[in-house]
Design a protein around this nucleic acid. Structure first.
Length: 736
DNA sequence: AGCACGCCGACT
DNA sequence: GTCGGCGTGCTC
């Protein structure tokens, strides 16, 4: 028995920036103190909650009379590893978010509910005695059955992962089981050593000189952050995989983060084909149970590669050896609500703590990353050549001033599309606008269709004929006459994907036209199917939004037309031009991946815009250097630290007043070195009947800003208005 | 965040 | 008379 009384300091999933003190459970008589990281069930007001033990203390911060006994310890050993608990604590501080909620978002739902998750005995398939006697070509009538049969003749058993890699479906397994050819074996997998032969399922591809040089610069025995800047198609993935292989060879695990959109079956297939180690997937498409199991496999070190989206940045590991962040500039690495963390930045900190290498890869690095590379904080690695015979596409601005556009396309662009089709190749029309037209109005009285809850224009959709608000979910039937003056005809202006698609079918009646946007690819399989169809290589025209911009390999694509290039040049958000450059470069990267040189046309009303010109003539890297120079002059990130305080309320005044309060807090405190901008209305001021305002804070001194944020939170915690008004803090925002 | 408590308006 | 609107306060 313990000779001193002790108290449990517990993080609970409530939005309060404190730990709660509890007495140990009544029946707790163990001689040992409980370990931080275990889950605890506790009474909390009128309800019961699952929390995580963060500390065992001898003092309490509250009156003794308030103390309650915890109900029970759920775990025997830690649920959150020490490393992960530390990471959560750091993130809670850095992003000014309550620890309990940070921890809660690190845990899979099953764990949050207090479930005990168990791994089933790793079931593997073996041949039945009967099947062992069959001749080796016995199953030649079924390709997949034959494949597994042959595999099992050579190897004794096939695990789930093996089946997955061989692309054996559950239907095939079921069929073979019914026929009595295979059976389940509960013998656990043979322990694998770390010889390259047992890690790799296929030979690595030969590297070109650049790739080999880059790979040699990764060091494995210390913290090292490398920015791998490689043009699209330069073979970054191959570098990742070979770097991962080295970490695995040293008996360690690898964590791979990929943007939401890039996590396609094809990407996963490449990893499964290359490695014959257990791979745990962690992303929102994995079921809750499976996610909990994969999480546990990662924690136990059973999964050697953990691959997933942003949420995998908080996956537990046993002995992590390397982290890869693919497409590190991608916005999906930043959580945009609740605990607003950057999976990239969190991972960099994680790597530094674990003393391991981390690779940030992108063809279009974020300005912060480039800045860090130039400043020597990151190792800057470059891949400048496309693998194989592919060349970089040529880019060209098309002046559309005083030009008659049809379906948003200039005569020159149409001509280019026609000749691409005539040559039997494919063309992509890129426009970032779903629907038929972004504006429906009355030519007679000037009425226009507006969403009543957002005060933004409705987008006209034609099939089905609806007015849709792209900011909230409001949709309603499109009127056929003017609701204001009863004029019989309504007009529309602007062009969306639906309209472009329609015009293309009229202009090119014998050419297949594919529209690819959120409306046409509702479920995940749709996109895969269309891409498969496209990659058969026949001449066709694609009309698509951002969905098409990233990651997909389009072998026969020669021409890309970007119709509304200027969109990114006019936004008040200083980051929007950076995003525009990234998007254009990424879309352009879709073209000319085959042997044909690709061509990109950028339609613009300001073709002489210096930023656009730099991008076109000198490429993304020079474009980025130019933008960095401008940011430096304006003391904007990455040359200063930024945070955004957002407030929203049905009452406009509440949102504004709360931000004014925050402003007063900063002004009256000793936080002289924080620049305050606002309260300003958000880019879209009203969404869903709620007014949104923001206060933009920047400082040359991070700790100064940090303390300012603390002051604001401190005042808010004692303020009534802050309870009536929804507000949030965003450290290192990516959207303003 | 939840959940209880408490104080006002329009209903069977 | 009560049902339920949400403003306020508390959670070890």
């Amino acid at each position: 028995m313990q000779n001193k009384p002790f108290y449990l300091k517990i993080a609970l999933p409530v939005p309060l920036p404190i730990l709660f003190d509890y007495l140990p459970p009544n029946n707790y008589l163990e001689p040992e103190l409980p370990l931080p990281g275990i889950r605890v069930k506790v009474p909390f007001g009128p309800r019961e909650l699952i929390g995580v033990l963060v500390e065992v203390g001898e003092q309490v911060n509250t009156g003794q009379e308030k103390l309650k006994h915890a109900l029970e310890f759920i775990d025997q050993t830690h649920c959150l590893t020490e490393e992960l608990l530390h990471l959560c604590q750091w993130a809670s501080q850095y992003y000014r978010h309550p620890l309990g909620e940070v921890i809660s978002s690190a845990l899979p739902k099953r764990y949050r509910k207090g479930d005990i998750v168990q791994l089933d005995e790793d079931s593997a398939w073996v041949l039945s005695t009967e099947a062992k006697g069959l001749p080796s070509d016995a199953l030649k009538r079924s390709k997949k059955q034959q494949l597994l049969f042959q595999y099992l003749l050579k190897n004794d058993c096939a695990s789930k992962d093996d089946c997955r890699r061989l692309e054996i479906s559950s239907a095939t397994l079921k069929a073979m089981k019914t026929k009595g050819l295979i059976e389940n074996s509960h013998s656990s997998q043979p322990p694998k050593d770390n010889l390259v032969a047992t890690i790799l399922a296929e030979k690595p591809k030969p590297l070109n000189a650049e790739q080999a040089e880059v790979l040699e610069k990764i060091s494995y025995h210390q913290f090292q952050c490398s920015l791998l800047e490689g043009v699209t198609g330069s073979g970054k993935t191959e570098v990742y995989m070979q770097a991962i292989a080295r970490a695995l060879g040293a008996g360690r695990q690898a964590l791979v983060l990929i943007p939401e959109i890039g996590l396609t079956p094809q990407t996963l297939k490449r990893f499964h084909q290359r490695f014959q180690v257990a791979i745990a997937e962690l992303h929102s498409r994995v079921s809750e149970l499976e996610r909990a199991k994969n999480w546990l496999k990662a924690k136990e070190g059973l999964a050697r590669i953990i691959i997933g989206t942003r949420l995998a940045a908080l996956a537990p590991t046993q002995n992590l050896g390397i982290i890869i962040i693919d497409e590190e500039h991608d916005a999906s690495f930043k959580q945009q609500d609740g605990f607003r963390y950057s999976a990239r930045d969190l991972s960099i900190y994680r790597a530094s703590q674990a003393k391991i290498p981390i690779i940030l890869g992108s063809a279009t690095p974020a300005l912060e990353s480039l800045h860090n590379a130039f400043a020597g904080k990151f190792q800057h690695l470059e891949l400048t050549r496309r693998a194989g015979k592919a060349n970089m596409p040529t880019m060209q601005a098309v002046d559309i001033r005083n030009t008659k556009l049809s379906a948003g396309l200039s005569p020159g662009a149409l001509e280019a599309i026609r000749s691409t089709i005539d040559a039997g190749r494919q063309a992509l029309i890129f426009l970032n606008r779903r629907g038929y037209a972004p504006l429906l109005y009355c030519h007679a009285c000037g009425w226009n269709a507006r969403c009543p809850s957002c005060e933004m224009n409705f987008t006209l959709h034609q099939n089905p004929k609806l007015l849709c608000c792209h900011h909230c979910d409001t949709r309603r039937p499109a009127p056929t006459q003017c609701p204001a003056c009863n004029h019989g005809q309504l007009s529309y202006s602007g062009t969306g994907t639906e309209q472009t698609w329609e015009s293309m079918t009229t202009l090119f009646p014998h050419v297949p036209i594919f529209r690819i946007d959120r409306d046409t690819t509702k479920n995940k399989h749709d996109l895969g199917k269309v891409l498969e169809e496209i990659n058969r290589g026949e001449a066709c025209i694609l009309v698509g939004t951002q969905m098409l911009a990233k990651g997909h390999h389009l072998e026969s694509l020669d021409l890309v037309v970007i119709t509304n290039t200027d969109q990114g040049l006019m936004s008040p958000d200083f980051k929007s031009i950076e995003r525009m450059g990234q998007l254009i470069t990424q879309v352009a990267g879709r073209a000319g991946r085959g042997e044909q040189r690709g061509r990109v046309l950028l339609q613009s009303y300001q073709p002489e815009h210096p930023g656009l010109q730099t991008l076109i003539t000198q490429g993304y890297h020079q474009f980025a250097i130019r933008l960095l120079e401008k940011r430096k002059q304006a003391h904007l990130p990455p040359y200063s630290y930024a945070a955004l305080l957002r407030a929203e309320s049905k009452r406009q005044q509440n949102a504004i007043e709360l931000l004014q309060l925050a402003k007063r807090v900063l002004n009256s405190g000793h936080r002289k070195n924080i620049k305050i901008l606002g309260p300003l209305p958000a880019f879209i001021e009203k969404v869903n009947n709620r007014y949104r305002y923001q206060l933009q804070l920047t400082s040359l001194n991070r700790s100064n800003l940090h303390h300012g944020l603390k002051d604001i939170q401190e005042v808010f915690s004692r303020n009534a208005l802050s309870k009536r008004t929804k507000w949030s803090l965003d450290v290192d925002p990516i959207e303003y």
